[in-house]
Protein backbone atom coordinates (compact mmCIF):
# COMPACT_ATOMS: atom_id res chain seq x y z
CA UNK A 1 0.00 0.00 0.00
CA UNK A 2 2.80 2.34 0.96
CA UNK A 3 4.63 1.37 -2.21
CA UNK A 4 1.52 2.13 -4.28
CA UNK A 5 1.20 5.50 -2.60
CA UNK A 6 4.80 6.29 -3.42
CA UNK A 7 4.31 5.35 -7.07
CA UNK A 8 1.16 7.47 -7.21
CA UNK A 9 2.96 10.43 -5.68
CA UNK A 10 5.84 10.13 -8.12
CA UNK A 11 3.40 9.85 -11.02
CA UNK A 12 1.47 12.90 -9.91
CA UNK A 13 4.68 14.85 -9.50
CA UNK A 14 5.86 13.89 -12.98
CA UNK A 15 2.50 14.95 -14.42
CA UNK A 16 2.59 18.24 -12.56
CA UNK A 17 6.12 18.97 -13.71
CA UNK A 18 5.21 18.07 -17.29
CA UNK A 19 2.26 20.44 -17.22
CA UNK A 20 4.32 23.16 -15.60
CA UNK A 21 6.91 22.78 -18.32
CA UNK A 22 4.29 22.75 -21.07
CA UNK A 23 2.37 25.87 -20.05
CA UNK A 24 5.12 28.42 -20.65
CA UNK A 25 5.75 26.94 -24.09
CA UNK A 26 2.11 27.45 -25.04
CA UNK A 27 1.64 30.86 -23.50
CA UNK A 28 2.32 34.06 -25.34
CA UNK A 29 3.23 35.86 -22.19
CA UNK A 30 6.07 35.02 -19.90
CA UNK A 31 5.78 37.62 -17.18
CA UNK A 32 4.09 35.80 -14.36
CA UNK A 33 5.29 38.22 -11.73
CA UNK A 34 4.65 41.94 -11.89
CA UNK A 35 7.63 44.09 -12.73
CA UNK A 36 9.42 45.63 -9.79
CA UNK A 37 8.42 49.12 -8.73
CA UNK A 38 11.33 51.28 -9.67
CA UNK A 39 11.77 54.94 -8.88
CA UNK A 40 14.34 57.67 -8.72
CA UNK A 41 16.07 56.03 -5.78
CA UNK A 42 16.55 52.67 -7.50
CA UNK A 43 20.10 51.70 -8.29
CA UNK A 44 21.41 51.45 -11.83
CA UNK A 45 22.03 47.74 -11.30
CA UNK A 46 18.46 47.14 -10.14
CA UNK A 47 17.04 49.03 -13.10
CA UNK A 48 19.28 47.18 -15.52
CA UNK A 49 18.29 43.81 -14.04
CA UNK A 50 14.61 44.63 -14.28
CA UNK A 51 15.11 46.02 -17.77
CA UNK A 52 16.82 42.82 -18.91
CA UNK A 53 14.01 40.66 -17.51
CA UNK A 54 11.12 42.73 -18.81
CA UNK A 55 12.54 43.22 -22.29
CA UNK A 56 13.40 39.51 -22.49
CA UNK A 57 9.81 38.63 -21.54
CA UNK A 58 8.47 40.83 -24.30
CA UNK A 59 10.92 39.51 -26.86
CA UNK A 60 9.86 35.94 -26.06
CA UNK A 61 6.17 36.86 -26.18
CA UNK A 62 6.55 38.76 -29.44
CA UNK A 63 8.43 35.91 -31.11
CA UNK A 64 5.68 33.51 -30.08
CA UNK A 65 2.91 35.86 -31.22
CA UNK A 66 4.61 36.57 -34.56
CA UNK A 67 4.90 32.83 -35.23
CA UNK A 68 1.25 32.20 -34.30
CA UNK A 69 -0.17 35.11 -36.23
CA UNK A 70 1.99 34.42 -39.28
CA UNK A 71 0.51 30.91 -39.37
CA UNK A 72 -3.09 32.10 -39.09
CA UNK A 73 -4.98 31.53 -42.29
CA UNK A 74 -8.08 33.39 -41.15
CA UNK A 75 -6.39 36.80 -41.01
CA UNK A 76 -6.89 39.01 -44.04
CA UNK A 77 -3.65 39.70 -45.86
CA UNK A 78 -3.82 43.43 -45.11
CA UNK A 79 -4.51 42.90 -41.41
CA UNK A 80 -1.76 40.32 -41.21
CA UNK A 81 0.65 42.77 -42.83
CA UNK A 82 -0.34 45.52 -40.37
CA UNK A 83 -0.05 43.20 -37.37
CA UNK A 84 3.30 41.74 -38.36
CA UNK A 85 4.63 45.21 -39.10
CA UNK A 86 3.63 46.39 -35.62
CA UNK A 87 4.89 43.32 -33.80
CA UNK A 88 8.19 43.21 -35.67
CA UNK A 89 8.71 46.90 -34.94
CA UNK A 90 8.00 46.15 -31.28
CA UNK A 91 10.48 43.28 -31.40
CA UNK A 92 13.19 45.48 -32.85
CA UNK A 93 12.32 48.12 -30.30
CA UNK A 94 12.67 45.65 -27.42
CA UNK A 95 15.98 44.38 -28.78
CA UNK A 96 17.29 47.93 -28.99
CA UNK A 97 15.91 48.89 -25.60
CA UNK A 98 17.43 45.83 -23.95
CA UNK A 99 20.84 46.73 -25.31
CA UNK A 100 20.46 50.39 -24.42
CA UNK A 101 19.42 49.77 -20.81
CA UNK A 102 22.33 47.37 -20.40
CA UNK A 103 24.69 50.03 -21.71
CA UNK A 104 23.26 52.93 -19.71
CA UNK A 105 25.68 54.46 -17.29
CA UNK A 106 23.34 56.43 -15.05
CA UNK A 107 20.31 55.31 -13.09
CA UNK A 108 18.27 58.28 -14.35
CA UNK A 109 18.82 57.40 -18.01
CA UNK A 110 18.22 53.71 -17.38
CA UNK A 111 14.98 54.51 -15.56
CA UNK A 112 13.75 56.65 -18.44
CA UNK A 113 14.55 53.87 -20.88
CA UNK A 114 12.93 51.29 -18.64
CA UNK A 115 9.75 53.35 -18.31
CA UNK A 116 9.48 53.66 -22.09
CA UNK A 117 8.23 50.07 -22.08
CA UNK A 118 5.12 51.35 -20.33
CA UNK A 119 4.70 54.59 -22.20
CA UNK A 120 6.16 54.29 -25.69
CA UNK A 121 5.92 50.59 -26.48
CA UNK A 122 2.99 49.01 -24.62
CA UNK A 123 3.78 45.62 -26.15
CA UNK A 124 1.27 43.65 -24.11
CA UNK A 125 -1.44 46.22 -23.52
CA UNK A 126 -1.64 47.41 -27.12
CA UNK A 127 0.42 45.62 -29.76
CA UNK A 128 -0.32 42.04 -28.83
CA UNK A 129 -3.82 42.61 -27.52
CA UNK A 130 -5.01 44.51 -30.60
CA UNK A 131 -3.43 41.90 -32.86
CA UNK A 132 -5.35 39.07 -31.26
CA UNK A 133 -8.63 41.01 -31.25
CA UNK A 134 -8.16 41.60 -34.98
CA UNK A 135 -7.30 37.94 -35.55
CA UNK A 136 -10.41 36.87 -33.69
CA UNK A 137 -12.57 39.30 -35.68
CA UNK A 138 -11.11 38.23 -39.01
CA UNK A 139 -11.76 34.59 -38.15
CA UNK A 140 -15.42 35.42 -37.72
CA UNK A 141 -15.86 37.74 -40.70
CA UNK A 142 -13.78 35.65 -43.07
CA UNK A 143 -14.94 32.16 -42.21
CA UNK A 144 -17.43 31.62 -39.38
CA UNK A 145 -20.08 34.12 -40.47
CA UNK A 146 -20.00 33.29 -44.22
CA UNK A 147 -20.21 29.55 -43.51
CA UNK A 148 -23.09 30.06 -41.09
CA UNK A 149 -24.86 32.19 -43.70
CA UNK A 150 -24.31 29.43 -46.23
CA UNK A 151 -25.71 26.84 -43.84
CA UNK A 152 -28.77 28.98 -43.08
CA UNK A 153 -29.44 29.50 -46.79
CA UNK A 154 -29.25 25.76 -47.46
CA UNK A 155 -31.51 25.00 -44.51
CA UNK A 156 -34.08 27.50 -45.81
CA UNK A 157 -33.92 25.87 -49.25
CA UNK A 158 -34.47 22.41 -47.78
CA UNK A 159 -37.47 23.62 -45.81
CA UNK A 160 -38.90 25.42 -48.84
CA UNK A 161 -38.60 22.24 -50.90
CA UNK A 162 -40.13 20.07 -48.18
CA UNK A 163 -42.81 22.08 -46.38
CA UNK A 164 -43.89 18.92 -44.56
CA UNK A 165 -40.66 19.14 -42.54
CA UNK A 166 -41.41 22.64 -41.27
CA UNK A 167 -42.34 22.86 -37.62
CA UNK A 168 -42.74 25.94 -35.43
CA UNK A 169 -39.65 24.87 -33.49
CA UNK A 170 -37.53 24.63 -36.66
CA UNK A 171 -38.80 27.99 -37.87
CA UNK A 172 -37.93 29.54 -34.54
CA UNK A 173 -34.45 28.03 -34.56
CA UNK A 174 -33.79 29.20 -38.10
CA UNK A 175 -35.01 32.71 -37.24
CA UNK A 176 -32.73 32.73 -34.17
CA UNK A 177 -29.81 31.45 -36.26
CA UNK A 178 -30.29 34.26 -38.79
CA UNK A 179 -30.64 36.85 -36.02
CA UNK A 180 -27.42 35.69 -34.35
CA UNK A 181 -25.56 35.77 -37.67
CA UNK A 182 -26.84 39.30 -38.34
CA UNK A 183 -25.78 40.44 -34.87
CA UNK A 184 -22.32 38.90 -35.26
CA UNK A 185 -21.96 40.62 -38.64
CA UNK A 186 -22.90 43.97 -37.13
CA UNK A 187 -20.52 43.57 -34.19
CA UNK A 188 -17.55 42.55 -36.33
CA UNK A 189 -18.14 45.21 -38.97
CA UNK A 190 -14.95 47.31 -38.91
CA UNK A 191 -13.83 45.63 -35.69
CA UNK A 192 -10.37 44.55 -36.81
CA UNK A 193 -9.62 47.99 -38.21
CA UNK A 194 -10.82 49.67 -35.02
CA UNK A 195 -8.60 47.46 -32.88
CA UNK A 196 -5.56 47.93 -35.08
CA UNK A 197 -6.00 51.71 -35.09
CA UNK A 198 -5.26 51.94 -31.36
CA UNK A 199 -1.81 53.28 -30.54
CA UNK A 200 0.22 53.30 -27.32
CA UNK A 201 -0.45 57.04 -27.10
CA UNK A 202 -4.18 56.40 -27.41
CA UNK A 203 -3.97 53.77 -24.71
CA UNK A 204 -2.01 56.13 -22.45
CA UNK A 205 -4.82 58.67 -22.84
CA UNK A 206 -7.58 56.11 -22.27
CA UNK A 207 -6.80 52.73 -20.79
CA UNK A 208 -10.24 51.46 -21.85
CA UNK A 209 -9.70 52.19 -25.52
CA UNK A 210 -9.54 48.50 -26.46
CA UNK A 211 -12.36 47.43 -24.17
CA UNK A 212 -15.15 48.06 -26.70
CA UNK A 213 -13.42 46.14 -29.53
CA UNK A 214 -12.72 43.36 -27.05
CA UNK A 215 -16.35 43.26 -25.88
CA UNK A 216 -17.67 43.29 -29.46
CA UNK A 217 -15.39 40.42 -30.43
CA UNK A 218 -16.52 38.47 -27.40
CA UNK A 219 -20.21 39.08 -28.14
CA UNK A 220 -19.76 38.19 -31.81
CA UNK A 221 -18.12 34.89 -30.86
CA UNK A 222 -21.04 34.11 -28.56
CA UNK A 223 -23.41 34.88 -31.46
CA UNK A 224 -21.62 32.66 -33.96
CA UNK A 225 -21.47 29.80 -31.45
CA UNK A 226 -25.19 30.12 -30.74
CA UNK A 227 -25.96 30.24 -34.47
CA UNK A 228 -23.94 27.07 -35.01
CA UNK A 229 -25.85 25.35 -32.20
CA UNK A 230 -29.14 26.36 -33.86
CA UNK A 231 -27.86 25.05 -37.18
CA UNK A 232 -26.90 21.71 -35.71
CA UNK A 233 -30.28 21.30 -34.01
CA UNK A 234 -32.06 22.00 -37.30
CA UNK A 235 -29.75 19.66 -39.19
CA UNK A 236 -30.46 16.86 -36.71
CA UNK A 237 -34.18 17.35 -37.24
CA UNK A 238 -33.81 17.26 -41.02
CA UNK A 239 -31.78 14.06 -41.11
Amino acid sequence: MKRFATIATVGATVCALSLAAAVPAMADTTSTTPPPKLNGTSSLAAIQAAGATQTANRITSLNSAIAKLTAKTTLTSSDKATILSTLNADLQGMDGLQAKIAADTTAATALTDYRSMYTVWRVYAVGMRQSYIAASADGLTGTAIPRLQSAATKIAAVLAAKPSKITPALQEQLADMNAKIADASAKTNGLAAAALAVTPAGFNANHSVLDTPHANAQAARADTKAAAIDGRAILAALR
Binding site: P35, N57, Y124, A125, I133, S136
Partner: peptide, 15 residues
Amino acid sequence: SATSGDQAAASSDGP
Protein backbone atom coordinates in the same frame (compact mmCIF):
# COMPACT_ATOMS: atom_id res chain seq x y z
CA SER B 1 -6.88 34.28 -30.44
CA ALA B 2 -9.08 35.91 -27.82
CA THR B 3 -7.43 33.89 -25.06
CA SER B 4 -3.99 34.96 -26.23
CA GLY B 5 -5.16 38.56 -26.35
CA ASP B 6 -6.56 38.31 -22.84
CA GLN B 7 -3.27 36.84 -21.60
CA ALA B 8 -1.43 39.78 -23.12
CA ALA B 9 -3.84 42.23 -21.53
CA ALA B 10 -3.42 40.52 -18.17
CA SER B 11 0.36 40.80 -18.38
CA SER B 12 1.43 43.81 -16.46
CA ASP B 13 2.48 46.59 -18.74
CA GLY B 14 3.11 48.82 -15.81
CA PRO B 15 1.42 52.04 -14.79
